[in-house]
């Protein structure tokens, strides 16, 4: 890093236009600044999007769902009455991030685009993420690594809100340098290392996340975000789970965090249906279904030398979260 420019963008279009190679988007900076300090990214220009009018807006309606600007602060999302009422899983996911100080500056767009927390990558050891040609973690301390979708990089995606948003079937609006806009589902926004090694998203050069939209379909439906951490605060998830029930067809959408290189959406088609309608169901059948669903969810998971506990943990977490609805 020899010199570092700074530009205050006044629109997403302008920001996208500046995102040539060597430029980085700055919003809250809670991930970018540590990356800069550790020398893991070496941009020549920082494009600040925090001043763009409307970039931090949050609007929520029962009919229209939620529209959240990329630069909205996690604290503001977690405390927004509409989000809390209609999308409690998202509110809970935002509240579970880092510390209050971090949430007060961290933004949703930045959180979705943050880089992995893999010990090796963050220590500046050459690996796929830093342009190297091997994964030192795979042969080293692997207890934090992925049990699903891993390889050749096994670093897990660290975001909490992404897991909730995935279960809520959120869309991402992306602005391009030429001013055009494309929209993609969150499920398509993220990719696996087998698709693309250097990044975790399908954002191309000259593209910037402008807005996140949560469809009205799940507004006010039963939903939950549960996160297991070693420390009671300021910790990334060992495993997290978002469970969102559809209103009409009684079947949950389940997403997991901390288990894969991307927020992991379970294929609902592969899960069995709950035993009966919500009214008057049989507790034993319900419990068996929850256990079966947890088993199905982790089918295909693979443990490395010391991350096998995550399989058990994820199963338990899914089962527990599903069982909570017996009391709803």
């Amino acid at each position: 890093m020899d010199s570092l420019g700074f530009h205050r963008a006044s629109s997403f279009e302008e920001a996208a236009g500046l995102l040539h190679s060597g430029a980085a988007v700055l919003a809250g900076g809670t991930d970018l600044v540590p990356l800069l300090k550790d020398g893991l990214v070496k941009p020549s220009l920082l494009v600040f999007i925090g001043d763009i009018p409307g970039a931090a807006s949050i609007s929520v309606t029962r009919r229209g769902g939620a529209r959240i600007g990329a630069a909205a602060k996690l604290t503001d999302i977690a405390n927004n009455p509409g989000v809390r009422r209609l999308f409690p899983a998202l509110a809970e996911a935002c509240r579970s991030v880092g510390t209050l100080q971090i949430r007060n500056v961290a933004t949703l767009g930045g959180n979705l685009c943050q880089r992995p927390r893999c010990w090796y990558y963050r220590s500046g050891i050459a690996c796929f993420k830093s342009g190297g040609e091997s994964c030192p973690a795979r042969d080293g301390l692997d207890e934090a690594l992925a049990i699903l979708g891993g390889g050749p990089c096994w670093a897990v995606h660290p975001s909490d809100p992404a897991v909730a948003l995935l279960a809520l079937d959120a869309k991402i609006t992306i602005r391009r340098a030429d001013g055009s806009v494309r929209e993609t589902s969150l499920a398509d926004f993220y990719c696996l290392p087998s698709d693309r090694l250097d990044r975790e998203t399908r954002l191309d050069a000259g593209e910037i996340v402008e807005r996140i939209t949560v469809p009205a379909r799940y507004a006010g439906s039963p939903q939950r975000y549960a996160k297991v951490t070693q420390r009671a605060a300021w910790d990334f998830a060992l495993v997290s789970a978002a469970v969102v029930w559809e209103k009409r067809r009684f079947r949950p959408r389940i997403a997991l965090g901390g288990v894969a290189p991307r927020p992991w959406l379970l294929d609902t088609a592969r899960l069995s249906d709950p035993p009966v309608s919500r009214r008057g169901r049989d507790p034993t059948a319900w419990e068996l279904w929850a256990i079966r669903t947890a088993e199905q969810a982790l089918r295909g998971s693979r443990a490395l030398s010391s991350n096998g506990y995550k399989i058990e943990l994820a199963k338990n977490l899914i089962r527990r979260t599903l069982l909570e609805w017996r009391r709803v």
Partner: peptide, 25 residues
């Protein structure tokens, strides 16, 4: 302290990855 056996280098040289108790703990 996490230290990679093969490379011989510590992996958590910061207060983010080296976890001291927080108030909540």
């Amino acid at each position: 302290r996490l230290q990679d056996r093969r490379l011989g280098v510590p992996l958590n040289c910061g207060l983010h990855e080296y976890k001291v108790p927080t108030l909540a703990d």
